[in-house]
């Protein structure tokens, strides 16, 4: 018994115990099931370039889907809609939004500087559209393959389940960055087209040069992409739980909406700092002079925690489950 428990905690030694056992009736099947993951594969580890190839093929698969292109199209449309709405609203020379400063963040600044459409666009898409797109892609990553019966063919290649999972997660992360950049690029294009560009007014009321503003916009896009990594890990974990792609996507997006609602209920303030979307809008702190780091750091720490917990949970589930489809 004790030996078995020791084995259970060590990843590698179990296969030693299996191979040490004489071949029984089920031994062949059992060994086969462990092949993608066992030490024999570790010993003839493919070159790192090969892993990159796996990642590249995953990424191409993700990006080539019509579904993904449609999601990116919707994301690109949001800043366009905001830009046109603000332009129409302010045609007579009025200011955008009520003077009290309600409405989405940064909207009132868009008429002065088109670059603010990038911030307004990201602030508008970050609560729902962006994470929904990530939820669809992450939820589909494993469960979608299982659903269409292609997962076992992927595992036939001597890549190992861990590496496949990493490639899948890396492709989801790449999609996070891609989706964020699509929003930012579309917003920048529309902003430059419809509104003047120039010196940027930070929310502390100071002015920075346009180049500095662009750098900050890029940093904010990167930060938004990083804010989505926790959500992506969560989606990946849910994706390993089920064999139905639709179920995984629906569960991920449903969970996102639930958590967003919980984050709005004042009575739950005790748990809110641990909800993954809680610090999402902190990216605005990058526009203060000097930058206010507290919330930014908290956001990144929280995302790292979600990635560690749900990434390892996805690994535990995916490397241990029976692949039947």
């Amino acid at each position: 018994m004790s030996r078995a428990e020791v084995n259970a905690t060590e990843d590698v030694s179990t296969d030693v115990s299996t191979s040490a056992a004489p071949p029984g009736p089920g031994a062949a099947r059992a060994t086969e099931a462990h092949v993608p993951d066992g030490p024999s594969v570790e010993s003839r580890r493919p070159s790192p370039l090969w892993a990159l190839g796996l990642f590249r093929s995953e990424l191409v698969t993700v990006v080539r889907r019509w579904r993904t292109l449609a999601l990116l199209g919707v994301l690109a449309a949001v800043p366009i809609l905001i830009g046109i709405a603000v332009k129409i609203e302010t045609r007579g020379g009025g200011t955008a939004g009520p003077s009290g400063g309600d409405g989405p963040a940064f909207i009132s600044q868009v008429t002065n500087n088109g670059l603010f459409l990038v911030f307004a666009g990201l602030a508008a898409t970050l609560p729902v559209f962006l994470p929904m797109a990530i939820g669809v892609v992450a939820g589909d990553s494993i469960a979608g393959e299982a659903n269409s019966g292609t997962l076992r063919y992927l595992l036939v290649a001597p890549a190992g389940r861990t590496r496949l999972l990493l490639a899948k997660y890396a492709s989801v992360l790449a999609f996070c960055l891609l989706a964020t950049l699509v929003v930012a690029a579309s917003a920048l294009a529309v902003g430059a087209l419809l509104f003047p560009l120039g010196e940027v007014t930070t929310i502390s009321g100071t002015q920075i040069s346009f180049a500095d503003g662009l750098v900050r916009a890029l940093a904010i896009a990167g930060l938004v992409a990083l804010s989505l990594t926790g959500m992506a890990a969560l989606g990946l974990f849910i994706s390993t739980l089920t064999g139905s792609g639709v179920a995984a996507m629906a569960a991920t997006v449903g969970l996102l909406i639930t958590v967003q609602i919980l984050d709005q209920i004042p009575q739950l303030h005790a748990i809110q700092p641990y909800l993954f979307p809680h610090y999402w809008l902190s990216f605005a702190d990058l526009l203060r002079v000097p930058v206010y780091w507290d919330q930014l750091v908290k956001n990144l720490e929280l995302q790292a925690l979600y990635v560690a917990v749900f990434g390892s949970a996805a690994w535990a589930r995916f490397t241990a489950k029976d692949i039947t489809a």
């Binding site: 084995n7 179990t14 115990s17 004489p22 029984g24 059992a30």
Partner: peptide, 26 residues
């Protein structure tokens, strides 16, 4: 490693434990 008595169920049990142990990581 009690070789003579090793049955498929035993190995399944061991494999199951090993798999369950992975959940200790998260």
């Amino acid at each position: 490693n009690d070789s003579a008595h090793t049955t498929e169920e035993a190995r399944d049990l061991v494999a199951g434990r090993r798999k369950a142990a992975r959940y200790l990581v998260p």
